[in-house]
Amino acid sequence: MIDCVIIDDEQHAIDLLEHYVGKVPYLNLVASTTDPIVGLAIVNNLQSGLVFLDVQMPQLSGVELLKVIKTNIRVVMTTAYKEYAFEGFEYDVVDYLLKPIDFPRFLKAVNRSIRLDQALSEKNNGGKAYLFVKTEQKGKLVKVDVESITFIEALGNYIAIHQIKQRRIITYMSLKELDEKLSDSGFVRVHKSFIISFAHIIAIEGNFVKILDEQRLIPLGNVYKQDFFKLLNQNLISPLLP
């Protein structure tokens, strides 16, 4: 769950962002205020989180606030004037949202913040990659170490993330979305319904792949064969043909 604060001198702008925050189960609205001084006090009491910060405000501008906000707080700037937004990037803000803000653009900024936090955490953990995925329990995210994933299976509008020792997590997202996230981490799409980890392949038997800790065989679809064997051949002394 990500704690967030909204600071904007216009109440209608706050109302819209509060509505958007309420639609995202992994966001928790801590507070919102039209007073930048009050907002600064709230933000600096957070251990971590995400702030939606208006650029132009009386008493203290958004850019002035940026200079005194704690470094472990992510900031998304909001503004009605595009020319003012770029100044915030000097202070490593996550993104800027141009008013009027629509929900898809809002969600893109939130997800960008999550990716930045994941990248920082990977760096601090010696490069170990992980994902946060939503569960069936509203507002709950589960951390999944990428190295533990053996294969991923499409289940209608859901996917099953299979891990070593036959653990499994069901989450609401598309296989395509996860394929894009993991394509540079040793994973390959082998079927319209399956992504597998190269690190956990035990054997290849005709048009099927045997995966660690999995009794059944994973089918190798004709559409994906060429790319699969291309990657496989990079790790073979005697190359195979599809």
Rank of each mutant, 00 (worst) to 15 (best):
P58G: 08
L231T: 09
L27V: 05
V21L: 05
K99D: 12
V51C: 03
I170M: 10
Q215S: 13
R74Q: 15
K143S: 05
I37K: 14
V93I: 11
Y91T: 06
F52Q: 01
L212H: 12
C4F: 06
L131H: 02
E177H: 10
N111E: 12
D54Q: 05
L236Y: 06
V93L: 00
Y158P: 00
S61C: 12
V144E: 07
L131V: 00
L116R: 08
E18M: 12
F187T: 02
K176G: 15
L40S: 08
P58L: 11
K230E: 06
P219R: 11
F151Q: 00
S48V: 11
P104D: 00
Q47C: 01
S32K: 10
A129H: 05
N44G: 02
A199E: 13
V94D: 04
F198T: 01
L155C: 06
T171N: 00
Q118M: 14
Q56M: 15
Q226D: 09
L16Y: 00
F106K: 01
K143C: 05
I164Q: 12
M77W: 12
A199C: 11
V43A: 02
I201H: 04
P239R: 15
K192R: 15
E177T: 11
L17I: 15
T79V: 05
L65Y: 10
G139N: 05
L46H: 00
F151R: 01
F52E: 02
G156N: 02
E83T: 07
V133W: 09
Q234F: 00
K210E: 06
K181L: 14
I149M: 08
I204Q: 05
F86E: 14
V55W: 12
K176F: 10
Q118K: 12
R189D: 04
Q56D: 14
V223A: 11
L17D: 10
V24H: 02
A160N: 12
R74T: 13
S61H: 13
V133Y: 10
L231H: 06
K192P: 01
E122R: 08
I169H: 13
S185M: 15
T34V: 08
L231P: 00
N44Q: 02
N72L: 11
T71Q: 09
K176R: 10
Y224R: 03
L27Y: 01
K123D: 04
M77N: 13
E83S: 11
P239G: 13
A129G: 04
F89M: 01
H19F: 12
D54V: 09
K99T: 06
D35S: 08
P104L: 02
S238E: 15
G22E: 02
L155E: 07
R105G: 12
S113H: 03
Q234K: 11
N44L: 04
I196P: 08
F106V: 07
V55M: 04
G22R: 03
D8A: 07
D213S: 08
R115N: 14
V75P: 15
E10H: 15
L175C: 11
V76I: 13
E147I: 07
K134D: 03
Q234V: 01
I202F: 10
K176D: 10
Q59S: 15
T71P: 07
D9S: 11
A41R: 14
P58C: 10
F106L: 02
V188N: 09
S183V: 14
L50N: 00
D15C: 09
A154F: 04
L240K: 12
V24D: 01
V146F: 03
